[in-house]
Design a protein around this nucleic acid. Structure first.
Lengths: 244, 244, 244, 244
DNA sequence: GTGGTCTAGACCACA
DNA sequence: GTGGTCTAGACCACT
């Protein structure tokens, strides 16, 4: 209940910054995996409705962040790099505190439990199939990672996890809510990425229970399970953060 | 769970559009009342960190939307106009459907119940005083409006109501969550404004109960009351919309 | 047939300059006589659709040119002064050459003979009455000036002469043409005013002949007489200019 | 001979309006042809002694009138569009009546016959060469248009015709007169443009006769031929207008 | 190198 | 002291 500043300064956003954000969002959501090649400069310019110059500026930023590698000539292009924890995130360390973590998970709790409750009411059978497939792949990745630990697998699991949660949100069929879930997960990515190094043992525990509740149309239960899942993740991360 | 567009076109946002948004947000939140004068062009430019030219472009838009009137000379300035329901929103009628309303209220339900739950845990006594004051003023406005109905009073109530809900959200002390509540209330403003003409009889019913729960630190109850309140408003608006 | 500059620089005209021009035009056309008071500042502002400030700026210019005198307080106002030939036109002497005179009279010849030809075809009887009255007053002024020479009378004759010529042009009922006659007479005023000191003996010679031709509907003759009149005036002025 | 309003309201003219007028004048006089590129924004600002911003405002108006098209990037710029008779002049149809046409041609008759008379006396041999060249090109265009009718050619002829008439006026070496000829032709352009679609058969008939008279120094004859030419054009347009 | 936009500052007309 | 307009220069995105 602040008294009255009333108006916040506005900040102009340059086109290439928007492109950086969009590409980062896409990478964060695991739409491209380490080693994948992004569409060509020309295609990106076309898709994003900007000029090639602008794409290049944006790519340069992501290259400086060690998220892409740029090779020229035949067979060149933009290649997705694995998140490298040794680079100090190029510039400013995200520097997450426990307080930030709490705020982010508070928000997740609010919007994701809400979303999953609606999802239970509005999901289609196609949604359920897609989500089940995702879960299956996540199990595979976990099993593989146990046999042969590797950051690439951890990374892949994170991407799948992200897609699972977003998929659940999409079942709510509410554009506003979906956008908010995307936003909070995007905001969480940076902080979590800087802490997350191993596959948390309980990472996939409650996913299938949640999906079952959604399948059964039991919103209350889905919501409660989601709350438990989020809380568990929160505690895990918080303890890692405290010890890092 | 759409398969693959992966990347959305980006859209450059001009500085004056951002200023329009910021001013609209401020007006929507009732930070200025009809008849009030906004800060002068020069002050706005200063506050918003843009040039006067940019402020002017933005003000021109709001003037075209009949939300501000512009007068010059000593004593002139930008004056806030009362929302005029007879202008067909200047250009495109907001054209809200029941479906849109449902989505918006779904979202309110999710974020505002979540926010009030946290608020119950984190509110300070100052917060409680402020909120109680707001409630007092809302009661006055309602009483006055019953004696002497007037659109100005309806409008004033809406502004106070908005401040009450935002105030509750701010008690959560979670910037992300506050931002989301602001966003959803902003999104709701246009649609609701186009339907809302009278003071709904139940407008203030649950507010004091919610505040009491927040004061008592009973998050569960606060959340439930808020859900009831939002649902009630939703039903009222939906019936008005259906009959309009 | 200059080859190609194609575009001329534009020049912004300040509001008070426009007011100066308008007032000058009005004074030049003899709509106010020396000693007359102009409408009050407030009235002028109203008539001219500008603010009082702007009127004041304009009046200040005319005062500096010794065309108006400004007195304040009760009974004050803007008083028209007689053209004072001893002031060197305040700033830059108009500095007319024979060449300029020729160009101006070339133009008068063209537009005024054309205008009078149309006038002969389109004049009404009211027009004729008005013009005859003007001629009568001009004769009176000439007679009076012969008995008792005075600059005031010369000035009055000039104003009447101007109104006679403009009146003829207005009979053409062609707004474009009338505007052009006004423009050329306005342009001529400054140069002529700086040379003209006495009543030329032949000043009124052909006026009644021209009016008679217009009355008779004889455009050809009216035009020829006008040409003769203009030529005569031209020669008189040119000789004065050569000897000054 | 109106009795007394005496003073007309003044109207502030914004710099960008002046630029619009100047550009319109230039386009009307055919100094740029459809498809031509205007000087760049920066050059125009330089030539017209205004800022780029002001040029832009003006260009925006002409773009809205479908007289220019704006493209950006290297090779972009302001391109002159062909007058599109299908756009209803974007906003207000010029809506010319026979009465307006008469007034305009009355004026043409007056000023252009006067101008050509002086031209016969003052033309140089260079003037004659230039005018003869123009006539030659006009003949070519007419011949080509007979073989292969096209609006582009009609438009080109109009531009050449305009330059011929202005060229004649310039021979008078009288700046005032030239300005008036330009003004009346400018005023005529809009009305005529909205009627003129074909090459009038008699479009070029008297041009060479007029030029011959000017070459011979026979002002009387040149003037008479010009009168005949203007009258003929007037009748042609009036009949088209009556039948449209 | 084009147009598109914003900025900072000035001057003006207005009340 | 308000809004209205223009200016000069900068930076950007586009092609």
């Amino acid at each position: 209940m602040t008294p009255s500043p009333h108006l916040e300064p506005v900040r102009q956003i340059a086109a290439h910054e928007l492109v950086v954000d969009e590409l980062r969002r896409s990478l964060d959501q695991g739409q491209f995996r380490p080693g994948d090649r992004l569409p060509s400069e020309r295609e990106l310019a076309d898709i994003l409705h900007v000029s090639r110059t602008t794409v290049r500026s944006a790519v340069a930023v992501l290259e400086a962040e060690h998220r892409l590698s740029v090779r020229r000539g035949r067979g060149g292009g933009f290649t997705v790099l694995a998140p490298a924890h040794d680079h100090p995130a190029s510039e400013q360390q995200a520097e997450v505190g426990l307080r930030d973590l709490r705020d982010l998970f508070d928000l997740r709790l609010v919007v994701e439990t809400g979303a999953v409750q609606l999802a239970a009411a509005r999901r289609t059978t196609d949604d359920l199939t897609d989500l089940a497939n995702l879960l299956g792949r996540m199990q595979q990745v976990i099993r593989e990672e146990r046999r042969r630990p590797s950051t690439a697998l951890v990374y892949e699991f994170q991407a799948l996890d992200n897609r699972f949660h977003l998929g659940l949100a999409r079942c709510s069929r509410n554009a506003h809510l979906i956008a908010q879930v995307e936003a909070v997960r995007g905001a969480m990515w940076g902080p979590v990425g800087s802490v997350f190094r191993d596959l948390e043992p309980n990472a996939n525990d409650l996913h299938s229970d949640i999906l079952a509740a959604v399948r059964g149309g039991d919103g209350e239960n889905a919501s409660a399970l989601m709350a438990e899942h989020i809380d568990s993740t929160h505690r895990t991360l918080a303890s890692w953060l405290a010890n890092s």
